[in-house]
Design a protein around this nucleic acid. Structure first.
Length: 416
RNA sequence: GUGGGCGUGGUCGAGGGGUUAAGACGCCAGGUUGUGGCCCUGGAGAUCGAGGGUUCGAUUCCCUCCGCUCACCCCA
């Protein structure tokens, strides 16, 4: 027997309601903030990701679904959305439109990870990007979009975590300061953390092994190493958040895994959550467009994990409407009635009324079938009805039924 | 890639080295003459993840592999 590939999942009819709910609510939230939908290809040139996300990041170095197509092109199933949106922004000259350009997407992403709770190899993200405006007000807008989207979904207990990792120019001094700070403790570090010390000292800040160590809490803060402009930008953003009463938690240990982030970085976590719990994460990427060959252009965005959002909808028991159809069922007895049943079903569908013909069983079994699929009404066609030119219309909720002339069935079923 | 837990019919889930492997849900059919949801009865459906080993005999013990799952790395 075949199984779905590791880390992938089938979305069965009974679960579809969560997906359509999330799709419609997130789209409405995005549009309320002025964001337009964009869709980009499922795969891209591999170089798009290696150059933007970062060669040394785990995403690029070990998690990409890359392959060579029949023409010899190196392509990769997209592991994240921002790079592709920026590519499209440049490719279609969106920098010639009024800036900033506000875009959102809802799409599958692919990462070759070991699956665990809240993490899949094929997963889905809602993402929003605002490209072409460096103003702190846009940072605020992006954060508000993330938070309002979660609120619209009916999710509570979400905490915004915020930090500022400075501009690319600020980074070297900060990294050096971190190394200085951790160097005396090198002897106490495990192999993973020694590796971090060398490759990416920022990662030491969110190391789980070191989470209890006081010398991590005492580590230098990136916000103390901001250049003048980044500092002003940061103070403006925090000022907005405070003025508007947006609750947030400043976390100097929040660093993000992708190379392109600058200045503002943020995540949203449920207060109750397991290991892989962030539902939203994002930040500013002021160097990315330029890195892709465009003019220096600021940008900011975030992505939300749909599977994680749905997990929270379930755990918080948020009411989500069922989207499965509930067609009228046409029951019949006798061979002659079958043709009449098929004809009636056709007419109803042509008139826009959902209708199906019951499976060929006893009337009792047809009724049971109609009941179990949640049919609101059953239309019964038997010898008696055929002879009289009527259809028996049974309301399944009230168990009341009446005879309706054949010609009037369409309006009787469709009407309230 | 590393480590822990698990792997019995569609689903959940007992059991146990030896005649026909419980039960529940679901599915199908009946409970008289053309009618659902409750109830009752019956039925179909499992080579007990795969391969190998120990044994007179294994689904039950051992090994390997595969899969699921949780955690690490990392991340939505």
């Amino acid at each position: 027997m075949y199984q779905a590939p590791r880390g992938t999942a089938d979305i069965l009819p009974e679960d579809q309601r969560y997906w359509s709910y999330v799709a419609s609510v997130t789209a409405a939230a995005a549009q309320t903030s002025g964001y337009s939908r964009i869709d980009t290809p499922l795969f891209e040139d591999t170089g798009l990701f290696t150059r933007t996300v970062g060669e040394e990041t785990d995403i690029v170095s070990k998690e990409m679904y890359s392959f060579k197509d029949r023409g010899g092109q190196e392509v990769t199933l997209r592991p994240e959305g921002t790079a592709a949106v920026c590519r499209a922004y440049l490719e279609h000259g969106l920098h010639n439109q009024a800036q900033p350009v506000r875009l959102y997407y809802l799409a599958s992403m692919f990462r070759y990870d070991r699956p665990q709770a809240g993490r899949y190899r094929q997963f889905h993200q809602f993402g929003a990007e605002a490209i072409g405006d460096a103003a702190a007000a846009v940072d605020l807008e992006m954060i508000q979009l993330a938070m309002s989207m979660l609120a619209r979904l009916g999710l509570g207990g979400m905490t915004l975590v915020l930090n500022n990792i400075g501009d690319a120019a600020d980074r070297p001094a900060y990294i050096e300061a971190l190394r200085e700070h951790f160097r005396p403790h090198l002897a106490h570090l495990g192999p993973d953390d020694r590796r971090r010390f060398e490759s990416n000292p920022l990662r030491l800040l969110d190391s789980k092994e070191l989470a209890r160590e006081t010398f991590v809490g005492d580590a230098p803060k990136s916000t103390d190493y901001l250049g003048a402009e980044a500092q002003a930008h940061w103070e403006e953003l925090v000022g907005y958040l405070d003025a508007l009463g947006v609750p947030y938690r400043l976390d100097h240990k929040l660093v993000r895994g992708l190379d392109y982030y600058t200045r503002t970085v943020f995540e949203v976590h449920p207060d109750e959550g397991g290991a892989q719990s962030a539902v939203c994460a994002g930040g500013r990427y002021d160097g990315l467009i330029e890195q892709l060959g465009g003019a220096p252009t600021p940008g900011i965005g975030f992505a939300a994990g749909i599977e994680r959002i749905i997990a929270n909808l379930r755990s918080q028991a948020v009411e989500v409407p069922d989207v499965r159809p509930s067609p009228a069922v046409i029951a019949y007895t006798g061979a002659a009635a079958k043709t009449a049943a098929v004809r009636l079903a056709t007419e109803l569908r042509d008139g826009g009324t959902a209708a199906i013909v019951a499976p060929e069983r006893s009337l009792k079994a047809q009724m049971r079938y109609a009941s179990s699929i949640g049919a609101p009404t059953v239309l019964i066609l038997g010898e008696a009805e055929l002879a009289k030119g009527v259809v028996t219309v049974r309301d399944m909720a009230t168990a009341k039924q009446r005879e309706v002339r054949r010609a009037d069935v369409g309006t009787a079923v469709a009407g309230p």
